[in-house]
Every structure is written in C-alpha cells, then in structure tokens.
C-alpha cells in the first residue's frame, strides 16, 4: 500500500481510534435515542409508532443501500452504454434505451446459455451438501471430547480470505499433463501414486464445474455446522432425556427429536447458503474466469458489468439472479405460514 507515513505514528493511531470511539458513541446515541422516542408514544398509535421506531432505521438502511440499487439495476437492464450510472451526467456518453435487447442477448451471446445450467448445479448442490455435511459433523462432534477444536477445523475455511482459498485449491487440483511429470497437486499425486493417469480437474469439461462446487461446499459447511451446532445445543435437555428414557437413541433420536427441533434453523441455513451461492463468483473468477465452460451467472454479471463494460447486459443477468431467488422466498413464506398456523 502507498506509504504516506513511513511508520505508525502514535498520534495517527490515536486519532484513528478516536474516530472509532466517536463512531461507536454516535451509533450508541442513535440507538438510545430511537428507544427513547419509541417509549414516548402511548395510546392508540403507540404500537405502530414503536414499530416504526424499531424497524424504521434498519429498513431505511436496506432501502437506500440495497433496494434503490436494485431498482436502478432494473432500469439499467433496458439501456445500452458503457457506464454503470445512467444519471451520472457524464459528458457525451449517453445511455440509449434498447428495450429487451439485453435480455435477448442472454440467449444469443455465445457461451451464455450454458451458464444457466452450471448455475443450476451450483444452487442445487452447494446448499444441500454444505448443510448436510455441516449437520452431520455438528451431530457427530456434539458433546465429544475436544469439540471446540474439532469445530474450529471445519470453521477454518470460512475464515480464510478468498485469495488464500484459491491458492489452497491450486495445490489440491494442480495438473501436470507431462507423462511422468511431477504432480504438485495433492489429488493427482495420489492418482499417479496408485498408477492412475492424472486428471485435469479444473480444465476438463464438464466435470470442472463440479470440482469448483466442491470448493464452495468446503467453505459453506463451516457456516452450516456452526449455526446447526448451536441449534442442537439449544434443544432442552429434558426433551432428550425423556426420549432416552423411552429407549430412543442414535439415528432414531436424531430423526425424531433433533431434526424436528432444528427445522427452522435448517431453513435459515439452507436459505442463506442458497443466496450466497447465487451471488458467489470469486471461485470461478479466480480459477479460469469462467472461460472453460464453467462460468456461473454471478461471474457473468460481474464480468459484463465491470470487465467488458456492458453494464446493461450485466444488469439483465442480475435480474435473472433476482428471479432465481423467488423459489427460495416462496419456500420461506410457506414455512412462515406453517409456523403461524
């Protein structure tokens, strides 16, 4: 990074921490202010006023920070032009209204249609397998000796940065196609070790997509494991005791006591991972940039928006991603209805 000051000056550090505490104080003051204002209301409108005070700030943040850009994206998907911001008032670079052209391009641009199929594989496999592995592990290490350490091992991939993760998997999948060449990738070293020809994991279509999916599962299982483990811990002991007294144990205990008790957490985990998967592009981007028939929608959204300067097409792809989340929302709404019934 650019060196402005050659060393950390104490005054500089102090001023930064000063800013931090000022920030914390301001945020705390806002929080207390909201609560106080909310408590002032009495009578007929009290309930509504308090709802506004409690939920208002968060909704405002979300509306400005996420909803507004989403609306801009919908608008942008009907325009052509190089620039992301249609209303930036930029010189002579006017955006042109092109109707549904950008959506048509989703089908006519070479290489784009196959991206849909890949995305489907990602969004089907990652949430289910990451949740499955996370749950399995959470159950297996529950109350085991050294549980905290055991969980930290699965959690680790979540904590590592994306650049690190990419390099990690390079040393797993690395392929040397030279006959008798040295394999510095773990998997191919093992394959050649037992006399099998090495495989080009990230290059050979169509399986390369699935080897990329493995990386995402590897990362997300830690999230699932952490959340589900907490949910398992929260099952009241008396329920489990009662079941045990009735002679229920092992797989049956899991199926008839544990699973129903953590159902809502399972839904939260599946939903969160599914949405994260739809949005994830770093893995594809870092491996081949999606050039080996292994691209996903999120990667194309990124590439078209920022690399090839086709923000209109990028926006159209983003809209498709928005639409793909609909089944997940519907699923959640159904579950909410069930809970309220």
């Amino acid at each position: 990074m650019p060196a402005l000051a050659p060393t950390v000056s104490a005054a500089d550090a102090a001023s930064k921490f000063g800013t931090m505490f000022l920030g914390l104080a301001v945020f705390a003051a806002v929080f207390i202010g909201i609560l106080l204002i909310a408590s002032l209301f009495r009578g007929k409108y009290a309930e509504k006023a308090q709802a506004v005070a409690f939920a208002g700030p968060a909704i405002l943040f979300i509306a400005l920070g996420l909803l507004y850009p989403a609306i801009l994206t919908i608008q942008r998907s009907f325009y052509s032009g190089k620039f992301f911001d249609l209303n930036a008032g930029l010189g002579n670079a006017k955006a042109k209204f092109v109707g549904f052209d950008n959506f048509q391009k989703l089908w006519t641009t070479p290489g784009l249609p196959e991206v849909f199929l890949n995305t489907l594989w990602w969004v089907l496999l990652v949430p289910s397998l990451a949740t499955g592995f996370g749950l399995l592990y959470a159950v297996l290490v529950d109350k085991a000796k050294g549980e905290a350490v055991a969980k930290a091992l699965i959690f680790l991939p979540m904590a590592i940065s994306m650049v690190g993760a990419t390099l990690i998997w390079k040393f797993v999948y690395y392929f040397n196609g030279e006959p008798g060449g040295v394999q510095i990738g773990l998997l191919n070293a093992m394959l050649t070790g037992v006399g099998i020809n090495p495989h080009d994991f990230l290059g050979a279509f169509p399986w390369n997509t699935f080897f990329l999916i493995v990386i995402m599962i590897w990362i997300q299982a830690g999230f699932a494991m952490t959340v589900l483990s907490a949910a398992i811990k929260a099952i009241p002991d008396d329920i489990i005791e009662a079941a045990r007294l009735d002679g229920v144990s092992g797989i049956q205990l899991f199926r008839y006591v544990t699973l129903p008790s953590i159902r809502s957490s399972l839904i939260v985990v599946l939903t969160t991972i599914a949405i994260a998967t739809l949005k994830a592009f770093d893995i594809v981007q870092a491996s081949s940039g999606g050039t080996l028939h292994d691209s996903v929608l999120a990667n194309e959204f990124y590439r078209r928006s920022f690399v090839t300067q086709e923000p209109g097409l990028g926006a159209a792809i983003a809209i498709v991603i928005f639409l793909l989340v609909t089944p997940i929302i519907v699923f959640n709404v159904i579950q909410m209805r069930k809970d309220q019934a």
Binding site: I59, P69, I275, Y302, I329, V333
Partner: peptide, 29 residues
Amino acid sequence: WIKFPGRDWLFVAVFALQIVPLQIALLPL
C-alpha cells in the same frame, strides 16, 4: 413481536434483498 400492518411482507422483502450483489449497491452509496 410488534404487530403492524404489512409486517410479514416487509420481513420477506428484507431477507430477500440479501440477493442484491454488493457490486451494484456500492456505486450509488
């Protein structure tokens, strides 16, 4: 825990907006 009109729909909208990629949200902000 507070009952107000449109609560459930607002809640669904809030969690659905997780899907908005940061990349498009950054520029307006």
